[in-house]
Amino acid sequence: MFRKRSQIQAKLNAPTLVLVAAIAIVTTRMLDLVLLFNLLGVRGILDFVHRSVQTWNLTLIFLASLVMLCIEIRCAFVIIKGRNWGRWLFLATQVIAVGYLWAASLGWGYPELFSIPGESKREIFRSLFTQKLPDLLVLFLLFIPARSRLFFKLQ
């Protein structure tokens, strides 16, 4: 019934690396949205949404991408609380995103909605790796350091 003081403090104090990872998730997602709005403008965003809802398949992919964005942001807040399932869910969203981007870029799925331009598979892979490098760093901060792993085991 009574917990030790150290256990209570462990729940309140997340390691710095975990906090940096969670803040990085939220920051990169919000920055991506701001840069997308800046690049496309209001008219471009409306055209993008209009193209995305032309067919049921495109609509489902568009809605799924929005749901994944919300899940990733939710994972960031759950990770700060020390919930182990949050980091695993974030890993799963990254695997799904990379898998779909790779498939769409190679011509499977709907490349006009989400694809990475490139002449060859190697060029596409290099661009995909460059785009996902911040997320790989976040995953590294969540899974590799001993303090991060210990933090999630204590919760």
Rank of each mutant, 00 (worst) to 15 (best):
V67D: 05
K81S: 12
R149Y: 08
N38L: 13
A10T: 12
A21F: 01
F90Y: 07
S127C: 04
V18Q: 00
L101Y: 09
R149P: 02
R122G: 07
V20P: 06
A76L: 11
F2T: 15
L66S: 07
V78W: 12
F125Y: 06
R149I: 06
F125A: 12
R87S: 01
L101D: 03
K11G: 15
L39T: 11
I61Y: 07
A14Q: 05
L12D: 12
A92F: 01
E112P: 12
E72T: 04
R87P: 06
T130W: 10
V78C: 07
M30A: 13
W102E: 03
K11C: 15
Q7N: 14
I45R: 10
A64F: 10
W88G: 01
I25Y: 03
L35H: 05
R126M: 13
V98S: 01
I8F: 13
G86W: 04
I45W: 11
M30F: 14
T59M: 12
C75W: 02
R147F: 01
Q9H: 11
F37K: 06
R74G: 14
G107C: 07
T59H: 03
L136Y: 09
V67N: 03
V49Y: 06
Q94S: 05
L69P: 00
R122K: 10
E123L: 04
K121I: 15
I73S: 00
I61V: 11
L91D: 10
L60S: 09
T55N: 04
L142E: 04
L101F: 10
F62D: 11
L40S: 04
N84D: 13
I61D: 07
P111M: 00
R5C: 12
A92L: 09
V95Y: 08
F90C: 07
A10H: 11
L60T: 05
H50S: 15
E119K: 06
G82W: 05
L33T: 11
N13P: 12
L113H: 07
Q131M: 14
L63A: 09
S105R: 05
S6E: 15
T27H: 09
I73Q: 01
V95S: 02
P111V: 03
A21V: 03
V20K: 07
F2K: 15
V67A: 13
P134G: 01
R5D: 15
S148T: 10
L63D: 07
Q54P: 05
L63E: 03
L58I: 08
I71D: 09
F125H: 08
N57T: 11
W88R: 06
D47Q: 02
S105Y: 02
Y100G: 04
L66G: 13
R3M: 14
K121C: 11
V18M: 03
K132M: 12
F125R: 03
W56C: 11
L58Y: 13
N84W: 08
